[in-house]
Design a protein around this nucleic acid. Structure first.
Ligand code: FES
Ligand code: FES
Lengths: 133, 133
DNA sequence: TATATTCCTACTATTCAGATAGGAATATAG
DNA sequence: CTATATTCCTATCTGAATAGTAGGAATATA
């Protein structure tokens, strides 16, 4: 239960990989090789990370990806949300009454509290913390 | 991300339903009707709850299900684990080295910490807390 | 112009959650 | 002893999501 997707794990490894080379950039193929990630699959992951402003890219020859921020300034929550979207134990986190038992659903507050707890944990740790262990 | 399965939500509603009737028992069909849960699907859920010792059952005519404990003595963690098993952000929670990057996988501690955080949240709240809101 | 790269779109395969179906085992009432 | 109501067991179907693949367009460099 509450399994983290392969995508998210790939994303973290890819980010860690980039974090290790401060200035230089790396191609998708290089990262894929270094971290044992299916190359074509990784392209899609990097695309999402870029869309969220966590990494930058250069196209064409000598192109590649590089960090857009200091690894110590990137929370794990940012990475996770870039890949899999917001944490949503229940679909009604945003819209009250989205689940079957509309208004007076007691468990709702319980799940929203869980989301807050998870969010807090993820927001507290940075890429730097995690990639250094 | 981190969606709670319909099964687990059904289970909580079913347990809440039983918690409301202290001594009496309820049949699967009654609970299904009261909580808008597919009747046949619910049977499988009740079966798991029973296997974990959270509820009791009587077969045959006048049979049904009833609470095995005081709702204030049942943690949400027990219910969740009865239905979907232990919280496992990554498959290597129990067996170090189960994931690809065996020994020196830095993210591992991060995920295990998350599991501990979630477990703690769930263990702290009881069925009574949640069903009363 | 040749080459290396990101980027975009579409497709396939596998897995899993959700749900359904049918009936065997068991208990009660009459 | 029989009819009935229930839990309990096993098998199956379906749709959605995840993981992964394929091919090529756009773009930058040398
Ligand atoms: S209304 Fe969303 S959990 Fe009940
Ligand atoms: S070894 Fe399990 S998360 Fe890395």
């Amino acid at each position: 239960m509450f399994a983290v997707s392969a995508r998210t794990q790939y994303a973290i490894r890819a980010m860690s990989c980039l974090a290790k080379r401060p200035d230089r950039s790396a191609t998708a193929a290089e990262i894929a090789l270094a971290e044992s990630i299916p190359a074509k699959y990784l392209e899609g992951i990097l695309s999402r990370l870029k869309a969220s402003g966590l990494i930058e890219s250069e196209r064409g020859k000598n192109g590649g990806y590089s960090m857009a921020k200091d690894p110590a300034a990137i929370s794990m929550l940012e990475i996770v949300e870039a890949i899999d979207g917001r944490i949503k134990p229940v679909t009604c986190v945003d819209a009250p009454g989205a689940c079957a038992f509309g208004g007076d659903c007691h468990p709702r507050n319980f799940w929203i509290g869980l989301k807050a707890t998870i969010d807090a944990y993820l927001a507290e740790r940075t890429l730097k913390d995690v990639s250094e262990g």
